[in-house]
C-alpha cells in the first residue's frame, strides 16, 4: 500500500442533468493507491449518484468541484475513456442488453482495453474467461447468455464481478454488489475480489454497502458515512460497526439541522 492518492474528490457537487435537482452537495474523498474504502448511508443519500458520476453517466451533471484520478482530471474524460484509464463501476442495477452474449461483449471490452494496434489473442482470452468464471464458480455455458437478460439478482451481481475480473481496473467502484447475493455467493464473490486485490495490490476499491456482512469478507481501511449528498463522517472499520448498532438517526438529525441553518 502506497500513499500516492489514486482518487481525489474535492467539493464535488452533482445534479440530475436537465433538472435543477442537486444530489451531491460537496463531497470530499481521497483514496490512496491500494486502499479499500467503504461508503455507507441511508437510501437516497447519493451513493450511487457518486459512483455513476465518477463513471461518467450522462444523466448527471457536475456543477462544482474536481475529481483527480491518478493525477489526471477524470471529469474531462468520456465514459469509455474512464474505463480505459482504469475505473470500473459494478452497477447496483446492472443493465440488460438483449441479444448480446456475455462472451461477445466481453471480448469487445477486453479488446478495447488493449494498447492501440494490439490484437486480442482469442485463445488467451478464452482461457482467461474460463479461469475467471471458474474463480467465481460460474458455469462456462453462462458466457453464451445475453448480458443480464433474464438473470437472477445474484447472477447479475456475479456477472459484474466477472467483468471486473476480466478488465482488471485500478479503481473498482462496487455499488451494493452484496445485495441480491446469497450467503455462499457473497463469500465466493468476496474471495474473487480479494484474489484480484492480491494479484494487483495497487488496485483500490470503493465499496458501497448497507451491511457489515460484506465488510467481514472484504476488509475496509476506511469507512465513510454519506447523508444527504455529503460525507458526514469518516473513520476506520469501527464506524461500520457503530452504524450497525445505532443506525443513521444521529447523522440524519444533524444533516437536517445543517439544512435548516
Amino acid at each position: 500500500m502506497s500513499d500516492a492518492p489514486i482518487l481525489r474528490i474535492q467539493g464535488l457537487e452533482v445534479q440530475v442533468a436537465e433538472e435543477d435537482l442537486p444530489i451531491l452537495k460537496g463531497v470530499d474523498l481521497e483514496i490512496n493507491s491500494g486502499e479499500i474504502h467503504a461508503i455507507m448511508g441511508p437510501n437516497g443519500s447519493g451513493k450511487s449518484t457518486l459512483a455513476k458520476a465518477l463513471a461518467g453517466h450522462p444523466g448527471y451533471e457536475v456543477t462544482s468541484g474536481s475529481v483527480e484520478f491518478r493525477g489526471e482530471d477524470l471529469l474531462e474524460l468520456e465514459t469509455d475513456e474512464r474505463s480505459l484509464a482504469g475505473v470500473f463501476l459494478a452497477f447496483q442495477y446492472p443493465v440488460e442488453i438483449p441479444g448480446v452474449s456475455i462472451a461477445n461483449f466481453l471480448r469487445t471490452a477486453v479488446q478495447a482495453h488493449l494498447p492501440e494496434g494490439e490484437e486480442l489473442d482469442i485463445f488467451d482470452y478464452s482461457d482467461q474467461l474460463i479461469e475467471r468464471m471458474t474463480m467465481l464458480d460460474m458455469d462456462v455455458a453462462f458466457a453464451e447468455r445475453h448480458v443480464n437478460d433474464g438473470f437472477s439478482g445474484g447472477e447479475k451481481k456475479r456477472n459484474e464481478i466477472l467483468q471486473m475480473a476480466m478488465l482488471r481496473p485500478k479503481l473498482a467502484l462496487m455499488d451494493e454488489t452484496d445485495s441480491g447475493l446469497d450467503i455462499d455467493a457473497l463469500k465466493i464473490v468476496a474471495e474473487g475480489v480479494n484474489k484480484l486485490k492480491a494479484e494487483d495490490p495497487e488496485m483500490s476499491v470503493l465499496l458501497i454497502t448497507h451491511y457489515q456482512r460484506l465488510l467481514d469478507y472484504i476488509k475496509p481501511d476506511h469507512v465513510h458515512v454519506m447523508v444527504d449528498g455529503r460525507i458526514v463522517q469518516s473513520g476506520g472499520p469501527e464506524v461500520a460497526l457503530e452504524l450497525e448498532a445505532d443506525g443513521y438517526k444521529v447523522f440524519e438529525d444533524a444533516a437536517a439541522e445543517t439544512a435548516r441553518a
Binding site: 444523466g59 468520456e78 465514459t79 474505463s83 443493465v95 442488453i97 448480446v100 461477445n104
Partner: peptide, 20 residues
C-alpha cells in the same frame, strides 16, 4: 452507458445494442 463504462466507444456500444 453500461457498455461504454466497460470501455466500448459510443459507436461500438450503439452497434452492439442495435445488433442485439
Amino acid at each position: 452507458f453500461y457498455l461504454m463504462s466497460r470501455g466500448l466507444e459510443e459507436v461500438q456500444a450503439e452497434r452492439l445494442v442495435v445488433t442485439g
